[in-house]
Design a binder for these strands. Structure first.
Length: 562
RNA sequence: UGGGGAGUGGCCAAGUGGUAAGGCACUGGCCUUUGGAGCCAGGUACCGAAGGUUCGAAUCCUUCCUCCCCAGCCA
């Protein structure tokens, strides 16, 4: 079960265009064969599975070329960032299985340097303090088709700008009173070059620098230089920053410092979920889910609680390729990688979610036998266990039909099935309550079939899971379904929420061996799906989350028949 | 619309002038003490479109179409 943190376990990682670029650099000697990358999250929310694509790409690129990957928090906006998120992000990346060495980097560590570089730009005559309001700046910026116009404050003297910027820093201005802007080109067809804002005034305490600063660098001003300071060679980011690259290059050129190569790739999107921190935060804040780690959330903490493994998530990242075209990966792909991992590693257990009682009428009253069960048919070393068998059992209600349709192989009057690892049984009748609801299924068993095989070689078409009624323990089981009913929820995502994304089964039965289940362990409930213990569990009341169902051929047959 | 990107089977994605990998999904079959897993097989992909160059183009040229990103003192 610990193999999940072994990154080298049989992973096939196809090459990609990013590595082609690195190969070219290595061939030309552009960075002297060095490869340094970084994963730069903003601590304004929890990481989701989309981030794992960027995490994986950055760390794997560094590993592939014998370089290193820094974890750096882009903490330039104290209005939105919190220590809670920093801690969560660290935990999530560790859990995913990546290692960034002993140092954690923060953009806030570069505030002083960034400030000095801003002064340098002012002295070079390419930055100025602007007293236009936010609204005015927007108006002056022009539109996509019309050029902007210069701010009336654009041509202040170097001395005046220096003095004003100093006053900004020392707190002489209120929030929003003025900003520091780069003096580039208000008519540029690339809007990012129309005198972008470098610093804004924010009288706000920062999680790490406290009240040391009241001016904070904008992302665009901080990001490229942070990479430069760390000697990053390949600055891998998502597509939307492509148009910002000329701006970063402009800054680096003006400052005359190390130029990383920015490479943009398409972020990972999945069907039936949303991958935007803003939307996820809204789901949390408005109570549509139980929190950032709600098992229905695509957050790493949510997936972890749901029972997803780091291996499955890494596999998805490796197998969906790195490209520049924006696409949406079907959620089925993720379900495949988690099933593949869990099939190999999860211990098999018996659980009956929706029980119906079965009485073996010819089985001796009071007799209890022990049958041996295999813990994992995919892994002999997982061994076997013993389970009690008695006259009264529970089976899954849906495994019995009084009037079965075609191709229903399970239990029905007169039909013979196998109780896994136990006996063949034949249904001889049912007991119903006043409402006509079946409360008991009566069967006879064949003592010759102990263990599940008939000496005469006769076959059965179905094998059912079961529990000895007097020995069964109770548990709550939470079934999760996709959070949205639309493959691509879009802007109107709240209206696409799936009302049945969570089903709580309060009274299920589990086999005695499951009482010892621990957090972080993965189980297959035979014939049902994969489950794990939820942290909400208490001593007297275990709670299991369904990670994913088993592939269900019968469900498909039913759909076709309907 | 100005600028920046992208278009290869249902979904991802290889391919970079020589006649379309692979994965997921799907469909058959085999096997099976999980209708799980596994194994085998399958889909005429006219490579966004139209022209052109070439003995030969998904790959080169031209034009066009569609989709995504940018007008935060967010990142």
């Amino acid at each position: 079960m610990n193999a999940q943190n072994n990154l080298t376990e049989n992973e096939t990682r196809p090459s990609n265009f990013v590595w082609d670029i690195v190969d070219e650099h290595n061939a030309s000697g552009r960075f002297g064969g060095q490869v340094i990358t970084r994963f730069p999250p903003e601590p304004n929310g929890y990481l989701h599975i989309g981030h794992s694509k960027a995490i994986s790409l950055n760390f794997e690129t560094a590993r592939r070329y014998g370089g290193k990957c820094n974890l750096r928090f882009d903490d330039t906006n104290p209005a939105k960032e919190e220590q809670e998120y920093i801690d969560g992000i660290i935990e999530d990346i560790r859990w995913l299985g990546f290692d960034w060495g002993d140092k954690i980097y923060y953009a806030s560590d570069y505030f002083r340097q960034l400030y000095e570089w801003a002064v340098q730009l002012i002295k070079q005559g390419v930055a100025y303090v602007d007293h236009l309001s936010a609204d005015e700046i927007r108006e002056y910026r022009g539109t996509l088709t019309e050029p902007g116009k210069n701010s009336p404050y654009r041509d202040r003297s170097v001395e005046e700008n220096l003095a004003l910027f100093e006053k900004m820093k020392s707190g002489d201005f209120k929030d929003g009173e003025c900003v520091l802007r780069a003096k580039i080109d208000m008519a540029s067809p690339n809007i990012n070059l129309r005198d972008p804002v470098l610093y804004r005034i924010l009288h706000e305490a920062h999680p790490r620098t406290g009240n040391q600063w009241c001016i904070y660098p904008m992302y665009d001003w901080a990001h490229g230089q942070s990479d430069s300071i760390e000697g990053v060679t390949h600055s891998i980011c998502t597509l939307e920053f492509e148009a910002h690259r000329p701006l970063y290059d402009w800054f680096l050129d003006q400052l005359g410092i190390h130029h990383p190569q920015q490479i943009e790739f398409a972020r990972l999107n999945l069907t039936y979920t949303v991958m935007s921190k803003r939307m996820l935060k809204q789901l949390v804040d408005e109570g549509h889910v139980g929190g950032w780690n709600d098992p229905r959330m695509p957050t790493l903490s949510g997936l972890r609680r749901r029972g997803y493994t780091p291996k499955a998530i890494r596999d998805l990242c490796d197998r969906t390729g790195v490209a520049k075209s924006n696409g949406v990966v079907e959620i089925e792909h993720l379900e495949h990688t988690i099933r593949q991992d869990l099939n190999r590693h999860a211990l098999r257990r018996m659980a009956v979610l929706d029980p119906i009682k079965v009485v073996i009428v010819n089985y001796p009253k009071g007799l209890v036998e022990e049958v041996e069960m295999i813990n994992n048919p995919e892994d002999e070393s997982a061994g076997t266990r013993k389970a009690p068998f008695s006259r009264e059992l529970y089976i899954e209600r849906e495994d019995f039909m009084e009037d079965p349709p075609r191709k229903f192989f399970r239990l029905s009057p007169g039909s013979e099935v196998r109780l896994r690892y136990a006996y063949f049984i034949i249904c001889t009748g049912v007991i119903k309550d006043a409402d006509g609801k079946i409360v008991e299924v009566h069967c006879t068993y064949d003592p010759e079939t102990r263990g599940g095989n008939a000496p005469d070689g006769r076959k059965v078409k179905a094998t059912l899971h079961w529990l000895s009624a007097p020995h069964a323990r109770t548990a709550e089981v939470r079934l999760y379904d996709r959070l949205f009913v639309e493959p691509e929820p879009g802007k109107d995502f709240l209206n696409a929420l799936n009302p049945d994304s969570l089903t709580v089964l309060g009274h299920c039965y589990i086999e005695p061996a499951l009482i010892d289940a621990g957090l972080g362990e993965h189980y297959q409930f035979e014939r049902i799906g994969y489950f794990c213990l939820d942290p909400d569990s208490t001593d007297g009341k275990p709670i299991f989350n369904r990670t994913v169902t088993l592939r269900d051929t019968w469900a498909k047959i039913q759909q076709k028949q309907a």
